[in-house]
Each structure stands twice: as C-alpha cells, then as structure tokens.
C-alpha cells in the first residue's frame, strides 16, 4: 500500500549518505516502512491521498460543502418564520376584532395556547437560523485565516528562512486538523438543538392540524379569503418543514456515522501512543 512513499523515504536517506546525523530514535525501531497489512478505516481498494496538497484540497472542498449545507439550513427556516408571523398576526386579529370569522377571543375563539404556539415555534426557528448564521460567520473567518496562512511560503524549514519571513510571529496558526475539529464541535452543538427542534416540530404539527380543524368548524364563511389563504399557506409550510427535516435527518445520520468512525480512530491512535497519561 504506500510503496511509492516508502521508496521516497528510503531514497532521501540514501541520497545523503554523507549526512552526519544522530538518530534519536530507538535503534530497534523500524520507522521507515509502513506495515502493508495494517487495517485502514476504509476498504482495502480505496486510494490514499498521496500528498498534503491533495489532502488539503479535499479538506477545503469538504469545508465548502458543509458551508453550503449550513447556508441552506439557515435560510430555509426563514420561510417557516414568515408563515408563523402570518399566524401570529392572524390570531391576534381574531383576538381583537369582534366580528371576526373565528369569533372573538372571549366568545369561544382562539385560546391563549393558539396565540402562543406559533410565537413559540417562530422564536425557536429564529434562534436556530440565527445560530447557524453565527456559526457560518465564524467558519468563514477560520477558513479565511487558514487559507491566508496556507498560501504563505513554508517558513519552518530553517532558521534562516524564519529570519526573512514576512509573517508575524504572533499570528494565530490554524491547522486543517483544527478546522475539522471545529466542525465536529459545531455538529455536536447543532445535534442537541436539532433534537429540541424535532420535539417542537411535532408539537407545531399538532397545533396546525388542530387549528385548521377549529378554523373549519367555527367559521361562518368557509370561503372567506383569509381562511382560505390560511388553510393553503400552513399546510405548505408544514410540508416544507417535513422536507427540511428529512434533509436534516439525512445530514445528521451521516454525521453520526462519521463521528463513530472518528471515535474509533481516536481510540486506536490513543492506544498506539501507549496507555499512560500524556
């Protein structure tokens, strides 16, 4: 499996036979060759990434893909937010107007529960959308920092290069590994929010269903334009929320699979480093 890189490693040693160096490793270590039978996280036929540039490119591509997902999942709830705003105003209108089709609040019309439910859903959706936008902004700044840092010439090969480096020694370094773990931290936070969102969605589904039935029952003019608009827009909103949830569920299931693989990998690395505390 990595015979080409093994040969390159050996070539570099053989090409400098006169280099006087003191090897600080254990004399019995066999560090210059990989175990071809070592188990890889993927199947045996999967190709490995042959250079850091390739790894970096794939890493950045993945980050951009996650960024697009984040934009979609932040913008989509706005549609539902607009519907909930409509619901709030509609309910408040029923509350205030005496001869409203659904009846005034004090005469068997919408209850306080009906007034608060769309508000509650609206607030939660706004919070989720805002959280995702904030995360997006943070990712953007991290990715830009990383790209700015990675485009600089390598300044770590010699002290002489360091002396002529244009980069401030105090500038923050962000690594690709750091970026990946930033995503994972974000995923874990979003997962908790998503669970709460699912509970609220079930609640809102019941509310919409119940409210539509109530609207149909109490109105004296079933063909009133307002009610018809309400009865069209809310089901569309709920249907779009279901589609949104399907997409989100798919994303989170994929993330969970990745988290499990990553945890197994971390345990393996930890065990290879030895059992004692670092």
């Amino acid at each position: 499996m990595r015979t080409d890189s093994n040969n390159k490693w050996k070539e570099s040693d053989e090409s400098n036979p006169s280099r006087e160096s003191t090897n600080l490793n254990s004399p019995n270590s066999n560090s210059s060759s990989a175990n071809p039978n070592s188990q890889s996280p993927n199947n045996e036929n999967a190709s490995t990434l042959s250079s850091f540039k390739q790894m970096e490119d794939y890493g950045i591509l993945y980050l951009k893909k996650q960024r697009k997902y984040l934009i979609f999942s932040a913008i989509f709830p706005i549609f539902s937010i607009l519907i909930q705003i409509f619901n709030i105003f509609f309910i408040m209108g029923q509350f205030m107007v005496e001869n409203a089709p659904m009846g005034h609040m004090n005469h068997g019309g919408p209850s306080l529960f009906d007034l608060l439910s769309p508000s509650f859903v609206f607030l939660l959706l706004s919070f989720i959308a805002l959280l995702k936008f904030l995360i997006l902004k943070k990712w953007d700044s991290l990715i830009n920092l990383y790209l700015r840092h990675s485009s600089l010439p390598s300044k770590f090969t010699s002290e002489k290069d360091q002396a002529t480096s244009e980069v401030s020694q105090n500038s923050r370094n962000i690594s690709l590994a750091g970026l990946f773990y930033e995503i994972i931290d974000t995923m874990l936070r979003l997962r908790s929010v998503f669970i709460i969102f699912n509970i609220i969605f079930i609640f809102s589904l019941q509310w919409v269903f119940r409210f539509i039935i109530m609207v149909v029952q109490v109105t004296s003019d079933p063909y009133s334009r307002n009610i018809l608009f309400f009865n069209i827009i809310n089901p569309i909103g709920e249907l779009s929320m279901i589609i949104y949830l399907i997409v989100e569920w798919r994303q989170f299931l994929q993330w969970n699979k990745k988290l499990v693989k990553l945890e197994n990998f971390e345990k393996r690395v930890y065990s290879e480093l030895g059992e004692s505390e670092l």
């Binding site: 996280p41 199947n43 890493g59 993945y62």
Partner: peptide
C-alpha cells in the same frame, strides 16, 4: 494523518 483527513472529509 491520511486516514484522519479521509474520515473527516467523508471520502469513504
């Protein structure tokens, strides 16, 4: 490191 990148970039 290769494995780490592959897992995180969901290349498998």
């Amino acid at each position: 490191y290769n494995w780490f990148v592959q897992i995180n970039a969901e290349l498998e």
